[in-house]
Nucleic acid binder design. Structure first.
Lengths: 230, 230
DNA sequence: CGCGATTTGTGCACGTCTTCACAAGCGCCT
DNA sequence: AGGCGCTTGTGAAGACGTGCACAAATCGCG
């Protein structure tokens, strides 16, 4: 499940604040989900809490980390050290949560040789050599959209089967390769949509109270997960 | 729908390559979704294509931009100019897709006064003044998790009703405020999970062919959206 | 003017996810 | 040892999203 990492983060917070056990209700609040949903997710893990008490925080952390495959620190290759790539290379949230940025690549010779956070940027054509030395598990693409597909092909060619794509385009990859996409502008556009919706509501107060509200454009939206993003 | 921005991006690509009309099949491919799903989404828009021909690219762009509220260029306030904030401030994908970064804030006096991409970083306590001058529609939080909730409260206090949160924590906000969360480490952890799953599969080839595969931890997963991320 | 090729819009069925509600189980206190 | 309160785990119902398959509609061509 895609919610396990969220639970894991909440659990780490709880562990740091000294909690030894936590109820499904408490953890659900900390993770921002429904408690029944959380219990169902955890029951799938096979990790049993104790009735009347709750879940053992430390045990649950170990369980989730095992399922997520975080017991081994995976090596990440980051391609594209432009604006965003720079930030990702310096982002300490990766190291603190089980990942190691093993190599930085770029296609621009101007950038090759630059040192970021203790790592030297290498040329993308050196990817095969580096991949032979380090066991690259995950590739991160932070290039312009025009270069993304080619980089993806190169990553797949050296055996990478998981890609995190920040470029605003769809990647086509062979079966067996997982791609996740993060598009920062799309996130803003979704918020913009909600802004527009809210503005239309206040401008047309007659529609208030209905669960379904017609938009000027004709689109109808249910009053969806207010204040709960993901 | 959250897929509209993806359609919009694909449509802009098509427009640039000279297409005047596009079939649901073609647009669906470009956006990486099923054609029936796309047609259903667009039919909700009330924007009619013509049967036998397809959709008018330019018209559809206008329609979607209107529904997303992109006809007005919304002002974005970015709080936290650390590693990630720096990158976001310099990210040109925002400007090119209907947003304008109107102000940068940070709580660290060391960073106040720094100029990034033509904007001067201001102290977060100046937020009310700046908000009175500019109509801030969306707030972006790129601070450490410890500061995120306080920043969110400050944003809400000056009337911001849409927040994009990059800090790894859940924000509690009053009703009517929309929060979307992007956690880069979580994306990697989800990929790690898939890696772990795939590794377990090859190690236990006996399970091949089944739609449901037992993991060492006991978790069972369906063979989910391979190569389709979101 | 009519016919066929093509494409949209949608009814329907299916599977998944979510939520409620409650029985079963555990620990603590007396 | 027994009862009481609290919490987990889960069955069932409902909401939701997805995809197929087909009727309706439009254009081009003879």
């Amino acid at each position: 499940m895609a919610r396990l990492p969220e639970y894991l983060r909440a659990l780490h917070n709880l562990a740091e604040t000294g909690h030894e056990t936590v109820s499904s209700e408490g953890l659900a609040n900390a993770a921002g989900v429904n408690s029944a949903k959380l219990r169902k997710d955890l029951s799938q893990l096979g990790s049993y809490g104790t009735r009347g008490v709750g879940y053992d925080v430390g045990l649950l952390i170990d369980q989730i980390e095992y399922v997520l495959g975080l017991t081994q620190r995976r090596a990440v290759a980051l391609v594209g050290v432009g604006n965003l790539g720079h930030a990702l290379a310096g982002y300490d949230g990766f190291a603190s949560r089980g990942f190691r940025i093993a190599a930085l690549f770029d296609a621009d010779q101007e950038r090759v040789g630059e040192e970021i956070n203790g790592l030297v940027v290498q040329h993308i054509d050196d990817l095969p050599r580096v991949a032979a030395e380090e066991a690259i598990a995950i590739g991160v693409i932070a290039t312009p959209a025009t270069a993304a597909q080619r980089v993806a092909d190169q990553l797949v060619a050296v055996g990478v089967t998981s890609i995190l794509n920040f470029a605003p385009c769809v990647l086509s990859v062979p079966e067996g390769v997982d791609v996740r996409k993060v598009d920062l502008a799309i996130e803003l556009q979704i918020l913009s949509f909600h802004e527009h919706r809210k503005a239309s509501l206040t401008a047309l107060p007659a529609a208030g109270g209905s669960a379904l509200t017609a938009l000027p454009g004709g689109l109808a939206v249910t009053e969806s997960q207010e204040a709960i993003g993901t």
